[in-house]
Amino acid sequence: MNLSNLLVNYEEAIAMVLFAIGFSNLLMQKNMIKKIIGFNIMDSAVYLFLALKGYIRGHKAAIVTDGVQSVDVYINPIPSGLVLTGIVVSVSVTALMLSLTIRLYRRYHTLDIDRITMEVKRGGDK
């Protein structure tokens, strides 16, 4: 194992750490809002990773300026496009999760998913 690679590609390493933080929050937090925050951290980490894949040091965003069309000036635009698509997806999923959370809160007056489950089991098939 060569740990110096981690230092060279520190951006990717940070993205993975963030992914792990978000993933474990989404999995283990009891509070719904914290779960949703975890989900957003997880997805943002993936977008950071993806954006890094398309970034070339010293190159500019892939918008043709001053008529320069050489590939040596611009970064790879495809990952940026994918990030935009991914952001749209995660925004809509976040909206859906938040609306579900509001409904649960109105019904059970708590954000704790475990307590909600207990309430549901006690309430039966209402």
Partner: peptide, 14 residues
């Protein structure tokens, strides 16, 4: 739209 299905859909989403 009852408590059961709301809770189930949240768990499914997570």
């Amino acid at each position: 739209q009852n408590g059961r299905t709301l809770e189930a859909s949240v768990r499914y989403m997570i």
